[in-house]
């Protein structure tokens, strides 16, 4: 199952709907890297609300998506990490250091607009 990436103005949104294998996560990473350039996106949102676990591979891939997007001129934000998922990550020692996070999609969009505004960009 591949994750559809929706384009909303200058922002790309991937809403993950079910548990992903490592390969599917890697595909999502590559799709984002390509589409940020193709659509000249300013922001990338990864919605993980539906995920019941974020392990070391998922964490590493999310970080890589965010850093890659940043190098391509887009800000990334991970939204929807569930309370139990966050708790388990902390216990295990996993972090999303350097990656912006927001409570949900709405907050994530607000964050992207806010960062763009401070940077003097206009986000459609």
């Amino acid at each position: 199952m591949s994750v559809p990436i929706l384009k909303q103005g200058d922002v790309l949104i991937a809403s993950i709907q079910a548990a992903l294998s490592d390969r599917e996560l890697a595909q999502l990473h590559d799709a984002f890297a390509e589409q940020v350039g193709r659509f000249r996106s300013r922001g990338v949102i990864i919605d993980v609300t539906a995920l019941d676990v974020l392990d070391s591979f998922a964490t590493r891939t999310l970080r890589s998506i965010a850093y890659t997007a940043k190098l391509r001129g887009a800000n990334a934000v991970v939204v929807g990490i569930q309370p139990d998922v966050a708790f388990a990550m902390v216990q295990l020692g996993l972090s999303l250091e350097g990656v912006a996070t927001a409570l949900d999609l709405e907050e994530g969009l607000a964050y992207i607009r806010d960062v763009a505004k401070r940077g003097g960009q206009r986000v459609r």
């Binding site: 019941d52 676990v53 139990d84 295990l92």
Partner: peptide, 10 residues
């Protein structure tokens, strides 16, 4: 349950 699932994943 989440912690157990995470440890199994690793």
């Amino acid at each position: 349950q989440t912690i157990i699932a995470l440890a199994i994943s690793e």
